[in-house]
């Protein structure tokens, strides 16, 4: 009869790649509106590249392991050793770049385990709000959240043998509840949305409702939090290694380098200052990136498609 509501402008279905490209362009527009986010992205990319290519780009890759050269020990920053050397004569710049590897690996693995677990529990508890399941999950979550995070990680790491793996386990155990909280809040409100009701009334399975209807609408806050969290995981990791509960020497770790250096302050200031700066820059980078991700995924008011 009439193809009434059909605007004359669209004649065909855009191909998948075209839709993808257009989506990407718009996302980039939103992300890049804030120059600081772009700066964050640049910092993060630089750090990731440096960590991946560490053996090829560091001036003294062998300094990352067991290496002693007392002839060059405790040198101040110079052209040959940009960040100076430590008391064993190892190049600090090389060790910092190698330390990025452990820090990034830790962040990625911790989030790769903590996020799915936390999100799944949050979805379950949120969708079945008011049930026994909700009570159990959320009370356990509350218990974890009520202990100061660093303290909990310290306690777990102290009980276990001190090494990188156990530090990661410790941080993972204290990290998932935050995602459970986050998703719980969203799932409790989303389950009352009419599209969820509609799916229920059609007869869709619980699996479909949890993972296909509710979860996709929680993703942007989850991704935003993840981008921000990378920095925080690194910080906690550094704190653990500062007190000797993380990566063990001679493998470099930023926290451990800072702690070693403090004994020689202020004479060998470069031993502390540069690793500290490295931690600060990493966290700054991931925080700026996180803000950008949030802007990018936010639904704009005048968001014409």
């Amino acid at each position: 009869m009439n193809a009434n509501l059909q605007p004359a402008s669209d004649i065909n279905i855009p191909s998948f790649t075209a839709r993808f490209k257009e989506g990407f362009r718009k996302k980039w527009y939103k992300f890049s509106r804030n120059k600081l986010s772009v700066a964050g992205l640049v910092i993060v990319l630089a750090i990731v590249m440096a960590a991946v290519l560490a053996p090829y780009i560091t001036p003294y890759p062998e300094h990352a392991g067991k290496f002693v050269d007392y002839g060059n020990a405790s040198l101040a920053p110079s052209a040959t050793h940009l960040f100076g050397t430590d008391i064993f004569g190892r190049d600090i710049l090389s060790r910092i770049i190698f330390a990025f590897r452990g820090a990034l690996l830790m962040a990625v693995l911790v989030l790769a385990i903590a996020v799915p677990v936390g999100v799944f529990l949050g979805l379950l508890a949120g969708y079945y709000k008011g049930s026994l399941l909700d009570t159990i999950i959320m009370r356990v979550t509350d218990i974890f959240l009520s202990v100061p995070p660093l303290l909990l990680a310290l306690a777990i790491a102290a009980v276990l043998e001190p090494n990188l793996t156990n530090a990661m386990i410790a941080i993972t155990v204290m990290w998932w509840p935050w995602y459970t909280r986050l998703v719980y809040g969203m799932a409790t409100s989303l389950r009352n949305e009419y599209f969820v009701t509609a799916a229920e009334l059609i007869g869709a399975s619980k699996f479909h409702i949890l993972f296909r209807e509710i979860l996709p609408n929680c993703l942007s806050p989850i991704f935003t939090k993840m981008a921000l969290d990378v920095g925080w995981v690194i910080l906690i990791g550094a704190a653990l290694s500062f007190v000797g509960l993380g990566e063990q020497p001679p493998t470099p770790a930023l926290g451990q380098m800072v702690s070693d250096g403090t004994r020689y302050m202020p004479d060998l200031w470069w031993m502390t200052v540069f690793p500290s700066l490295a931690i600060a820059v990493m966290i700054l980078g991931f925080n700026l990136l996180g803000d950008g991700v949030r802007d990018m995924l936010a639904k704009g008011e005048h968001d014409h498609e």
Binding site: E193, Y194, F195, T197, A198, A199, L201, I202, G203, E213, P216, N217, L219
Partner: peptide, 18 residues
């Protein structure tokens, strides 16, 4: 459920935005 269906008031929230 096949025989009995409903159309909700708010077309904004009855379709999954994602």
């Amino acid at each position: 459920k096949k025989d009995l269906q409903i159309v909700f008031q708010d077309p904004g929230s009855s379709l999954n935005p994602s």
